[in-house]
């Protein structure tokens, strides 16, 4: 009933949000943001055994303008923090942040003077992946969770946009 009957099986109907979200999650390009040990596990995830190209993410873009996902992998030190903030601001919308590892989530084992105790003090984080370092499977699980989050991203509703703006301001 309805228009599908007349068009047959040649046409797919869906909502705009769903198709755009599907497109976004299928080719999230990470910005190379490996800082410390977790970066090694991130590189290993992109290498041959846990191929991240299966998810369309093998294009690690060095330029933040061309990336939409920032995987903060490694300890965030205070000297580096202004640079991270600037790179986050240079990324274009839509953008997501994954805090990979214990150090990015909360400072990790480094409870000391030069370490920022968690990147979420300065940036809005979407997914936290615990581990020191998290196994590549752990990183992939976190990425898949982010995919689920993106698939439900109601970016066309005004209420969501306001909430997002408020979250950005707070960080």
């Amino acid at each position: 009933m309805g228009i599908e009957e007349h068009l047959g099986y040649n046409v797919l109907t869906t909502t705009l949000e769903k198709i755009v979200d599907w497109g976004r999650k299928s080719s999230l390009w990470p910005c190379t943001f490996g800082l410390a040990c977790c970066a090694i596990e991130m590189i290993v995830t992109a290498a041959n055994r846990w191929d991240i190209a299966r998810f369309g993410m093998e294009a690690f873009r060095a330029s933040p303008r061309q990336a939409d996902l920032m995987i903060v992998a490694g300890t965030v030190c205070k000297k580096m923090m202004p640079a991270i903030k600037r790179i986050y601001e240079q990324m274009t919308e839509p953008k997501w942040v994954i805090a990979m590892g214990a150090c990015a989530s909360s400072g990790g084992i480094f409870d000391s003077y030069p370490v920022v105790q968690g990147i979420d003090l300065y940036l809005p984080v979407d997914v936290y992946i615990p581990g020191c370092p998290p196994r590549p499977e752990g990183l992939l699980y976190g990425i898949l969770k982010l995919h689920e989050k993106i698939l439900q991203d109601p970016f066309l509703t005004k209420q969501y946009r306001d909430k997002l703006a408020a979250r950005r301001e707070a960080a």
Partner: peptide, 11 residues
């Protein structure tokens, strides 16, 4: 350098 100084010796 110093962008990954974590204060290991102090800890």
């Amino acid at each position: 350098i110093g962008y990954l100084h974590r204060g290991i010796e102090k800890m």
